[in-house]
Design a binder for these strands. Structure first.
Length: 193
DNA sequence: GGGCCGATTGTT
DNA sequence: ACAATCGGCCCG
């Protein structure tokens, strides 16, 4: 197996949030804890959030919580939700333009769902704003062979009440770690414009 | 300062 | 269907 000590540069993240979301599927999310323990697994489920999107934390302007989304791409946006969970996002778009991809599931033991991923990988508010482009750091993302469009499924995003017409959730077809399996879906290659 | 709500999850 | 659990956000 090839080394995990590689990572996407900020050029990868300084693009359309929807493209970054799609391209993150299959990439290896990697985690060092205390400088030694390494966790890793392929990203299998993501969601996109953008500036003109009513479901996005940044849609009504910059606040203390979401300010990282307005910063440079390739950094972690970690927020606290429902009084008990953290969720991990990757910041996208050029510096000054908000955008992020929510990491909903990783193909490692028991890491389905964004809340459980952060709990099990010990990701919390102290990682908010952290750069993800240093291989071997606390948290980074290692490139992988691109997936075929026919292996990707799109659906509305989970847990939001607005913008249900946007098919901005992407996951790897038939992957066991994907959450919310009962949802209706379409293949990425047949998505409507 | 107060009240409401949430990009979740596990139980009833 | 609903409880757990609490910081963020908006209003006043």
């Amino acid at each position: 197996m090839t080394s995990l000590l590689r990572s996407y540069s900020d050029d990868f993240y300084r693009r359309s949030t929807l493209l970054v979301a799609r391209d993150l599927l299959g990439a290896q999310l990697c985690r060092n804890i205390g400088g030694k323990t390494v966790l890793s697994g392929p990203i299998v489920e993501v969601e996109a959030y953008t500036a003109d999107d009513p479901a996005c934390h940044a849609s009504r302007g910059k606040t203390k919580r979401c300010e990282v989304m307005f910063g440079p791409p390739g950094h972690a946006y970690v927020y606290f939700i429902y009084g008990m969970y953290h969720c991990l996002n990757v910041v996208t778009e050029p510096d000054g333009v908000p955008g992020a991809v929510l990491i909903r599931a990783v193909g490692a033991d028991g890491t389905d769902g964004p809340g459980k991923l952060c709990r099990q990988w010990q990701i919390d508010a102290k990682h908010n704003g952290l750069s993800l482009i240093q291989p071997g750091g606390d948290l980074w993302i290692c490139p992988s062979k691109p997936l075929k469009d026919s292996d990707i499924v799109v659906t509305p995003r989970i847990g939001i009440s607005s913008a249900q017409d946007r098919l901005w959730r992407f996951f790897i077809k038939d992957h066991p770690a994907v959450s919310g399996k009962k949802q209706a879906h379409k293949t990425y290659s047949s998505r409507r414009k």
